[in-house]
């Protein structure tokens, strides 16, 4: 039996599903369409194969995810990854936090800031800009959302414009979604 990963890390674990993934050979046309399966693209993760049980949402979800995380303009890709990690920290999604911490580190070419976020959460000692981003995204991720006008003021004082703040809202909110799937439909096990 593999060991469940319980502490935040930037080393990406495996993900073990609690729900049986759809078998590609038995998938319906709607599932294959949502999975975007082609003869050259048959390597699909267990996570996505679990989500294929609901092809109607999966079909919209994949392009929406890409639009929020990779659209041109607005907030930098690295800072959107910080929004993703902030939500994952609140929702305790170890797997999402690891994947997006690793991406942040690659994009920003720095590992020190993310190491502090994973270790200390909202208390992490960061630059004013990153600190404002982290705290806003973590508070937005609570239930009910707890971000306030003061948190937005902290973002604008740290130099973020409205387009960047909208992208931060979207990336943090998107991981309120992703975490609620990844953390509940399976668990991270040591790679």
């Amino acid at each position: 039996m593999s060991r469940i990963v319980k502490d935040f890390t930037s080393r990406v674990p495996h993900w073990h599903p609690h729900v049986t993934p759809v078998e590609l050979d038995k998938a319906t046309p709607a599932q294959l369409d949502a999975l975007q399966v082609t003869p050259s693209n048959r390597k699909i993760s267990d996570y996505v194969l679990v989500l294929a049980h609901d092809p109607e949402t999966l079909k919209q979800r994949s392009p929406l995810f890409n639009a929020i995380m990779y659209n041109r303009g607005g907030m930098s890709r690295a800072e959107r990854e910080m929004g993703a990690v902030a939500a994952s920290r609140v929702n305790h999604c170890i797997y999402c936090a690891a994947v997006h911490a690793e991406r942040y580190n690659q994009l920003s070419k720095d590992e020190t800031a993310m190491a502090k976020v994973l270790a200390d959460g909202a208390e992490a000692d960061l630059t004013p800009r990153l600190g404002a981003i982290l705290r806003f995204a973590m508070k937005l991720s609570e239930c009910p959302p707890a971000a306030t006008a003061e948190d937005v003021t902290a973002l604008t004082q740290a130099g973020l414009d409205a387009e960047e703040i909208l992208d931060l809202v979207l990336s943090a909110a998107l991981f309120g979604w992703a975490n609620r799937l990844m953390h509940t439909l399976g668990e991270p096990v040591a790679a």
């Binding site: 991720s141 239930c143 309120g176 979604w177 439909l185």
Partner: peptide
């Protein structure tokens, strides 16, 4: 899975509007 997507999506949507 359908239930999980419903809960997760609505939670996302509410946070976009809160922001």
């Amino acid at each position: 899975v359908r239930l999980s997507e419903l809960i997760a999506f609505v939670s996302y949507q509410i946070r976009v509007v809160a922001g």
